[in-house]
Design a protein around this nucleic acid. Structure first.
Length: 319
DNA sequence: GCAATGTAGGGAAAAGCCCGGG
DNA sequence: CCCCGGGCTTTTCCCTACATTG
């Protein structure tokens, strides 16, 4: 089934007067949301976002012509060319999920996009939305059709070269470049599903032998990594590092909307749901939704209390 | 005051992936 | 070229504490 997506479904428009009433954080939120929406349009196949408008959004420039809303301001006519283009997406259908391929984050937090050439720098916590359009070949769940249609777009090439510079082996499936071809071959296994190393205890398979060894520790219970401050032990060094942040107070993950910082990525993700209003955990008994799994569980306990009370009242009825 | 809820801190376990050195 | 160790990130689940709300 295909439903049409209209620009009106995702757009928020302000007049200059309304814009003047917004504080800095609200303006930033607006820009972030619009960039996010544009990136979503790109995901579903919209291919002609106006780069100057995106640039303006990214730079936080003023977007208005006196007395008009933002989207009217971008053309002399009633509608901006930008909006016209976006309106053209009305016939874009929501993609069949089978046409969506998994994302490989182009810039991992350990390899942040430090695009000095462009003056871009992305911390682990920064949203990629402002950067997505420069990496359309490597955006979350980007459609195959879209990738194909852009595979020969010359405007992408200069920036792509920045990321492949000095890396001779490139994955023909996702375009990711590697400094040596054995790294590429291993990477390609993530596409093919090949996992040559299998655990003889549980049958779980892994791409790398070191991953299997790491996995084996879950069977042996071995925890070779110990915190020198409190003696707590962990099976993986990264889990120790995470733990050590509770001693150091390090909080490298920052919410782009309110600036609050967190010691771990998942805490930031959880926090971000307080801004988006997302409540993915739903009570199967009353339908009430919660932003946190544990809040749902706690809530479900109140139903158990009700059940117990119902049992009591049932017995008292029998007397 | 109390129960329910919102939110955040933190622990634990595990997996995915990449890099560099031997 | 392959193996290996190390490192980073992410996800999921869980428990808990404190604040807020009705």
């Amino acid at each position: 089934m295909h439903e049409s997506v209209t620009f009106e479904d995702v757009a928020v428009d302000f007049t200059q007067e309304e814009w003047a009433l917004l504080d800095t954080s609200q303006r930033k939120l607006f820009r972030d949301v619009m960039l996010e929406n544009i990136s979503h349009l790109v995901f579903v196949g919209y291919q002609h976002c106006k780069l100057d408008v995106i640039f303006q959004l990214e730079q936080g420039e003023e977007l208005w012509i006196e007395g008009r809303g933002f989207f009217q301001s971008h053309s002399p006519g009633r509608k901006s060319a930008f909006k016209e283009e976006l309106l053209a997406t009305q016939h874009i259908s929501k993609k069949d999920t089978s046409t969506i391929i998994p994302m490989q984050t182009f810039h991992t937090p350990e390899d942040p996009c430090d695009c000095n050439d462009l003056g871009e720098d992305f911390s682990p916590s920064s949203t990629l939305s402002q950067h997505l359009l420069t990496h359309t070949e490597k955006t979350p769940n980007i459609s195959k059709e879209y990738q194909k249609s852009h595979s020969d777009q010359s405007y992408l090439n200069p920036h792509k070269q920045i990321h492949t510079r000095g890396k001779s082996c490139e994955c023909h499936l996702c375009g990711k470049a590697f400094s040596n071809c054995s790294s590429l071959r291993r990477h390609e296994m993530t596409h093919t599903g090949e996992k040559p190393y299998e655990c003889h205890i549980c049958g779980n398979a892994f791409i790398q032998s070191s991953d299997l060894r790491k996995h084996n520790l879950t069977h042996t219970g071995e925890k070779p990594y110990e915190c020198h401050l409190c003696g707590k032990a962990f099976s993986q060094s990264s889990n120790l590092r995470q733990h050590e942040r509770t001693h150091t107070g390090e909080q490298p993950y920052e919410c782009q909307l309110c600036g609050k910082t967190f010691s771990k990525c998942s805490a930031l993700r959880r926090h971000e749901r307080t801004h988006t209003g997302e409540k993915p955990y739903e009570c199967h008994l009353c339908g009430k939704a919660f932003s946190q799994c544990s809040a749902l569980r706690r809530h479900e306990g109140t139903h158990n209390g009700e059940k117990i009370m119902n049992v009591f009242s049932k017995y008292s009825d029998l007397r």
